[in-house]
Write a protein that binds this DNA or RNA. Sequence first.
RNA 1: GCCGGCGUAGCUCAGUGGUAGAGCAACUGAUUCGUAAUCAGUAGGUCCCCAGUUCAAAUCUGGGCGCCGGCACCA
Length: 639
Amino acid sequence: MIEVILPDGAKRQLVSGSTGTALATNISKSLAKKAIAIKQNGKLVDLALELTDGAAVEIITIDSPEALELLRHDCAHVLAEAVQELFPGTQVTIGPAIENGFYYDFAREQPFTPYDLEIIQKRMKEIIDRNEAFIREEWDRQEAIKFFESKGEVYKAELIQDLPESETISIYRQGEWLDLCRGPHMPSTGWVGAAFKLMSVAGAYWRGDHRNAMLQRIYGTVWRSEKELAAHLTMLEEAEKRDHRRLGREMDLFHLQEEAAGSIFWHAKGWTLYRQIEAYMRHRLEGAGYFEVKTPQLVDRALWEASGHWDKFRENMFTAETEDERILALKPMNCPCHVQIFRQGLKSYRELPMRMAEFGSCHRNEPSGSLHGIMRVRAFTQDDAHIFATENQITSECKEFCDLLLSIYEDFGFTEVRVKFSDRPDVRAGEDSVWDKAETALMDAVNASGLEFELNPGEGAFYGPKLEFVLRDAIGRDWQCGTFQVDFVLPERLGATYVGEDSQRHTPVMLHRAILGSFERFIGILIENYAGRLPIWLAPVQVTVATIVSDADQYAREVFNQLKAAGIRAEIDLRNEKINYKVREHSLAKTPIMLVVGRREAIEGTVAVRKLGVKEQETLALSEAISRLQIEAKMPIGL
RNA sequence: GCCGGCGUAGCUCAGUGGUAGAGCAACUGAUUCGUAAUCAGUAGGUCCCCAGUUCAAAUCUGGGCGCCGGCACCA
């Protein structure tokens, strides 16, 4: 007999050799029907596995949170079987579960077409209907390699070759087909059900390395029920509607065109939004003790060689040649330029920390395939700043920065922020003692700020550890925006020094930091987060005055003039159109407030206030409406 | 950069070798209307670019550019 412990602490005796299936049946028939796996001592295993004496076990059913990952991975296996049945000679590689679904990477000469996906999907249904049991086998390593090599599966053979010696080589069979797999799996293919869909084919490098062969990756999504699948597909459609590229056009904010790939043509409304953000940031930085500078766009390569960027990023830098054959580079970053300003004149420790900010316009020749709307462009503006400080100012500067960053994110409507702490990479500059100091200071600082953070080991910059700030948007997507980096290398390389209390020269620490990241990308994120319905302080047009009849034109102009005088960004719509039509148009344009005026309002000196998305209106005296709007539309800078 | 798909009116798309189309938007006229589409009419195209095949190319072939979905990259 063996004894296992259930999640509620209850103990259950079973005959030796009992499996998870036996346990589930032992507990109840209905549970056995829904059981798909076992969690034994915290590890997911097959239902068919023999339980060990004294183990803490939990029955995983199709409704358990853990089930989705199994479901998705199983679906990937079904996909692989379908593909190999339909396209003999195709090699399988790996096929994991991912968020919302799964993928499988295949090696095949001919590309899969959208039509192929339909055929594959049909075959998958058949395989699921066959309800073949997933059967685990453990193989000898060398035999497994031989087996896969004999089948021409060189990728699988390579995978086994590279598995650590300690690892058991497990194979899962489903009917005639089998795959190398760690497991676990659900009892049979039937459990995958019908709520799946193949989504797309894409290229992907073998083992994520661009020097390797390109495989074909088929993406799919799978859910417990048709209803969940439908909800997921609806969510995708909704996400598409808030795509910043689409809204940018619909709201007349910006456009992109071939002749300037990767650079943005800002239209009047988009530029108004941009300027609002810039003005807001300028206020916040000023309040936080920064001063603003502006540095050159074109800088001789000599400076980039000195900073080390020429070596590393030459391929991605735009250059221009002068008549006397000097090579200038369009600046890809601002740091070296800021050091030049710092180096002007002798600096005292009394001047530190020195917080130098720039809305730095940068150019990087990003790979063509990486461009994406206004989120990833070749010409962008960082809300950049460098804090020149002494080593023992790092902690306080970092804490102040975190406070500033969180407060700014909150003003933009982002309250869910995650922090990643990236420490020393294998290849790095600087003594370990300096790294110890930098990491400790940063760690103290992030602790002092009260922020939760996760470790990102080895992901720091080559010159120092960094914090990365990731914000979550309204539909749960994460965006990395802010950064805070401790740098001991660049000031040294570029010869920045200050005179300390001891009247000796010292090298300052340079703290690289950004909050928005880039204006362009951040605006893209804002648009998608708000689905275009920007908070009133950011909206390019805050208020539209719309008339119902032309008799109200004169009064509408008066309303409009008073709004302008009150500093509100207003528009006026005197067109001879029905009010329904105007309401619809301005709602689609996502203008936050409409002031509707007809004969009644003109006579009474009032306005009907209609807020975007709200059917009910409120009629207010004009002066009252304006003073309320003035407060509502105000930039959150505490003035 | 790599793999695949796509490129026709401002937008969404139809058109597969023989006269370039629809809906919406735009413009003009009429309509003066109370909170998400008034009616009628008009105009709008280098069918991404460059070569080639053909009597004839939006359509077929080759090259280029751009965009989209991924991968890789992201100081």
